[in-house]
């Protein structure tokens, strides 16, 4: 059509139309701008990847001295006599994290369900703010509170649990007569249990906010369907909200696990360090990788420092694996596909 209209005015045959070239390459100021953006991205990437490289480079001396397998399986920490390993601290880290997650997950589920399902609409934003604030309270403040307040309140509970449920592995304490009223209370002090409870309060907010995010995204239609079929509120939660938010629950728990393993100062303030695997969580004496680093770096010789770097590398890799797992789990589920976490 256009050729017919155009022909009389031009008076000569049109050149054949070709597809116009779309230039997407930026020019001038935009070129500079995009390079700046790329540079920032590259800088961040370099910083983040060199963390692992530097830890490995500094720790390789100690790792080479001990050998990987011996480093992982040795319990003692005497780098000066070349007898050191992370068996105690890794086990301790995992035990503290396990106690923390055991307490934090029910608490976080309760808070998340309350905010997304039970709380009055007006209260909701205030509660979300409170939980966020809880995440921003410095860990040294949690440590102070745990050491100067919680510890003495928890000891009777620890004693009660160990006497009542002592038959359960991990919970028993050998060598203490529970019926002896004069028994030393220090047996129950500075234990994995107390450190785990304080860390549980610290990781609760992150778990809770990931859970709440995925709970509140559960489809309204399915909720109403459940109510229409005569479900009680709990019935609706169990059949719609919890299955929908399962990815958020697992992912949030793993994120919390990662945080719990990396926690330093509160754990360091609460435990009394031991260098022997301590499976009795109620008994005094515990350890973790980060507490070990905070404890030993001050007076460390270059070789001891190298051993500490190796321990830090182990912690770094452990948390990375847990976190990548968490984000993979969150991204794969139905609720996670929509959320930011």
């Amino acid at each position: 059509m256009t050729t017919v209209v155009a022909a009389p005015t031009s008076g000569q045959p049109n050149p054949p139309e070709t597809a116009r070239k779309v230039r997407s390459a930026a020019a001038g100021a935009d070129r500079v701008f995009q390079l700046t953006l790329r540079g920032a991205g590259l800088t961040v990437l370099v910083i983040m990847t060199t963390i692992g490289l530097f830890l490995f480079y500094r720790g390789s001396q100690a790792l080479g001295d001990a050998g990987i397998w011996k480093f992982i399986t040795t319990q003692a920490w005497q780098p000066s006599s070349h007898n050191f390993g992370i068996a105690t601290v890794i086990t301790g880290t995992l035990l503290i994290a396990a106690v923390a997650v055991t307490f934090a997950v029910p608490l976080a589920t309760g808070v998340a369900l309350y905010i997304s399902e039970y709380a009055p609409r007006k209260l909701r934003q205030a509660l979300i703010n409170l939980v966020d604030l809880m995440a921003a309270v410095p860990s040294v403040v949690y440590g102070l509170w745990g050491f100067y307040f919680l510890q003495e309140k928890i000891i009777p509970l620890a004693k009660w649990i160990s006497t009542t449920f002592g038959w359960f592995p991990f919970l028993g304490i050998s060598g203490v007569d529970p019926n002896d009223p004069l028994a030393d209370k220090t047996v129950y002090e500075s234990s994995t249990f107390i450190a785990g409870i304080v860390v549980a309060l610290m990781i609760m907010p992150i778990i809770s906010s990931v859970m709440r995010e995925s709970f509140s995204q559960s489809p309204v239609g399915e909720r109403e369907g459940a109510f229409a079929l005569g479900a009680t509120r709990w019935g609706m939660i169990r059949s719609v909200v919890l299955p929908f938010g399962r990815g958020g629950m697992i992912g949030g728990t793993m994120l919390g696990l990662g945080r719990a393993m990396g926690e330093t100062i509160a754990v360091y303030m609460l435990i009394s360090p031991v260098f022997q695997i301590q499976p009795h969580i109620l008994r005094s004496g515990a350890n973790s990788v980060s507490a070990l680093i905070a404890l030993k770096f001050g007076a460390a010789s270059p070789f001891e420092l190298s051993a500490l770097f190796a321990a830090g590398l182990a912690l770094f890799m452990l948390t990375l694996v847990v976190n990548f797992g968490a984000s993979a789990v969150i991204a794969r589920t139905r609720s996670g596909a929509l959320s930011d976490a």
């Binding site: 990662g258 990396g262 330093t264 830090g312 948390t319 847990v322």
Partner: peptide, 20 residues
């Protein structure tokens, strides 16, 4: 990478600066 690093243990950040 940036998302994975949000959970970087803070003591590891300190170790990194100490090393570098």
């Amino acid at each position: 990478v940036a998302e994975a690093m949000t959970a970087l243990p803070s003591i590891v950040a300190g170790l990194f600066i100490l090393a570098s």
